[in-house]
Nucleic acid binder design. Structure first.
Lengths: 345, 345
DNA sequence: ATTTTTAATGTGTACGTACACATAACATTT
DNA sequence: AAATGTTATGTGTACGTACACATTAAAAAT
């Protein structure tokens, strides 16, 4: 059903119907009501193509994400965003990336400045530098620029959507897999590899969930937990890591981040047979999963997160649909026998 | 860059450019070459909206799938297909379902007849009744109707795409999970619940993969495998099932299909603590996963399979993109701790 | 009673593409 | 030489919407 047909039905011109649809006023009360009734009656849906053609707008979305080296975690969301930008290009969606140093709030602040100067139609942001990200949300709200948060959430930020993970549940799942692998007993090491203060939030939640699972499960009395940290800012952190692994000699290790490959490296080098669970199927972890050195990876589909964030803006800006507020992605369990189907979705 | 601009550049009219783009002939060799050069030079991409508006076609896709009761496996692909039909409705994609009885080839043949009479723009088919499905593929080829296969593949069918699973690898994965759960030892039962001869192919492949994994893994010497079938066409099959479980009393059970819930029911009723692995996160299995009676479900995203099949036709027919030939979906490992994020994606 | 203002409604054009049709230029036949 | 056929090219219209602008009718001001 087109506007033309509706106009004919209501005995008015196209223009009048158009004014009613867009609530532009200058229509008498009676005709407005009559047209609204008809619109409802025929369940009028604007023609997507015609609308797109006449509007022919392009939308600039900025993505504010940490920079990365090849193979690292933040490569994944970026990939998803890029793929979405490519797929949605024909609908006028353009994405501009702003990469900041996740260990340097000043660099984040500078990039925020650049983003705001661009006056984008939407912003995708990662609250890695939490304090500054909160401030950014407030500014975006006052500037009426819609924004979307990926990875970890900011409560009451006013974003159009959050796309991420349930970190606590991720930890619980890791605990289940690792404790099953060690036969429900033995010494288990939670090993956090850190390189800045901001990254801690997710690590903490995962560790919390991990310990919570083990404490609640009454069939797991024989498990001993040791919790240790390694700080990448120390120059000798790799040796530290090696010393810990050899010294502790646990039955299972949980690394609550994508940096599990550093541990896998040591296990391979030292030929240690220790069950190992970590996060994120990034390139750096791929070979170790294939070789079975890492027993399980818990993945939160970071690529999909990025993709969905852009797609959400497409829905929000182009098709003017509602978007979901909170979207928690599945926690995929990845192991030697199924990793090959998880790449490049 | 529009056709108009290209016409201006080439010093010809819109019509000539149009004829070149669509290769309609009636253009001199020289101008054709000139226009082709310019098209390439400016990397001309037709405006999606304008094209959609003027074509304003609608495409009828028929989906030929087994009928089902609520909660059963075949509900999942249907759901995905329906969701895609809804999402792609605005692009003129319409889906008509034809449900057949998977235990009755005659009903399949009748539905095939109806499908062909409709002369659809595309067909989605499930090769459950393999022999007849192969014949259908041949007829669709001669009628030049593009078709797509989901679930399990038909080799050299001429389909535009296959979307499904790797059944052998699915079995291997199940073996890994189950053997890990039983501590790498004990008695393991492979239990196939069958209700027709056609369904066997996938079951067989999974069992094959399962046994293959266990035989190859040299650290699993202490495992004993027992393989049994239950036939749902027998009136007393439920009792048979119960007798087997109680009589065999294995340490772990692998049900290479979605019917694992029948086994879970017995385990719950008899309070048997046996590790249980099966397939497909269908509604019937949901509560048993939540309760931890089923330890692991291997899911092949049947809903996504259906969705992608329709989306593929959208890409193929509307946007005229190439589509991937074979698409193997990830084998998701689902357990008590992560099942909640796998529903309604 | 005429002009001006205001409110309501109608009309025209553009978006970029596809395709039917019209016209021009040239070659071939009578 | 005139008529017809062929090939190449140009023109017009439609798709459905959005929005600027034009027109009409009624109300208010002179």
């Amino acid at each position: 059903m087109t506007i033309k047909e509706i106009a004919k039905r209501a005995n008015v011109s196209l223009g009048t119907v158009d004014r009613v649809i867009h609530d532009r006023g200058k229509v008498s009360k009676e005709t407005k009501e009559k047209i609204l009734r008809i619109l409802k009656e025929v369940d009028y849906k604007p023609n997507f193509y015609a609308r797109g053609l006449v509007l022919n707008k392009s939308y600039v979305i900025t993505a504010l994400v940490p920079d990365f080296d090849a193979g690292e975690y933040w490569e994944m969301p970026s990939r998803g965003i890029k793929q979405a930008a490519k797929d949605l290009n024909q609908f006028g969606i353009k994405v501009v990336f702003f990469y900041f140093d996740q260990n340097d709030s000043e660099s984040f602040i500078r990039k925020v400045q650049e983003v705001l100067e661009l006056k984008p139609d939407g912003v995708i942001l990662t609250p890695v530098i939490n304090f500054e990200a909160v401030k950014l949300c407030a500014r975006l709200r006052t500037m009426a620029i819609p924004f979307s948060i990926i990875d970890s959430n900011i409560q009451n930020s006013g974003s159009i959507s959050f796309i991420g993970q349930d970190a606590i549940q991720s930890g619980r799942l890791a605990a289940k897999l690792l404790s099953t692998s060690t036969g429900g007993k033995g010494k288990i090491l939670i090993l956090s590899i850190k390189n800045n203060e901001n990254h801690n939030k997710t690590l903490q939640k995962r560790s919390e969930g991990f310990k919570d699972f083990l404490s609640q499960s009454d069939s797991l009395q024989d498990i001993k937990i040791v919790e240790l940290n390694v700080d990448q800012r120390e120059s000798n952190w790799k040796e530290c890591l090696e010393d810990i692994l050899v010294g502790q000699n646990p039955d299972g290790i949980y690394v609550p981040s994508s940096k599990v490959h550093f541990v896998a490296e040591v296990l391979m080098k030292r030929k240690l047979k220790i069950k190992l669970v970590g996060n994120d199927l990034i390139d750096n972890n791929l070979d170790f999963i294939a070789a079975g050195i890492i027993d399980y990876i818990i993945d939160q589909r970071p690529e999909t997160q990025g993709y969905l964030a852009v797609e959400n803006f497409y829905k929000y800006l182009v098709t003017k649909q509602r978007v979901e507020n909170d979207y928690y992605l599945p926690l995929d369990i990845i192991t030697k026998e199924n990793y090959m189907y998880y790449r490049s979705q």
